[in-house]
Amino acid sequence: MKQQIPLVLVFVFGVLLAIQYFVPSEPSQRFYEVALDGLTVIGIFAMVLGIWSQIHVGYNKIKRRAEDWQYSVVTLVSMFGMAFCGLSFMGGLNGPIFRQLYNNIFIPIQAAIFSLLAFYIASASYRAFRARSAVSTVLLVAALLLMLRVIPTGPLADPINQIGSWMLMVPNMAAKRAILIGVGLGSVATALKIVLGIERSYLGKD
């Protein structure tokens, strides 16, 4: 029950969804749509697990008065507050308070966190862009060309734009194709291992 049924389910759904592609018909298309919807719906239940885990960790921290427990209060209050503002009688996703919280808290913090990375990426650029070898010089030139394409460089703008576009469309595409071919092969091999029950780490130990 603990091991065999999950293996059978993985095999059945894996094979059926792989086969449906080769049987272009209405029932097979319907099965495909139901499976995709199913994955989304189960994802919502998985989110419930994640939120429960967040509440559990936060509650325990507050109860034990662990270090920095005050921040768990902030997290839990803001989480419930935001969810409450998203309720039907508050206007749902288009409710005025929900939109205000989204625009004035969620967006500014998110943008600030990501823009914070600009400072760290500056120091990373210094290390990565030092032309210590021919290979790192190629990295430097490619990155510089790409950045120069979008800034005004006067009479140099046209040639830089042309060389930059060619670099993106040709050598960059070649390397991306090599990577994608590798990713494709790896994904197919992993999917086959899972469907055939060779890879079972998702079942846990017992």
Binding site: M47, S78, M82, L93, I105, F106, Q110
Partner: peptide, 20 residues
């Protein structure tokens, strides 16, 4: 902490309204 809470609440509401 505020961001974690607000984003959890946001995705909870979004998941409910868009998926359920």
């Amino acid at each position: 902490s505020l961001y974690v809470g607000i984003s959890a609440g946001y995705w909870m509401s979004y998941g409910f309204w868009s998926t359920i």
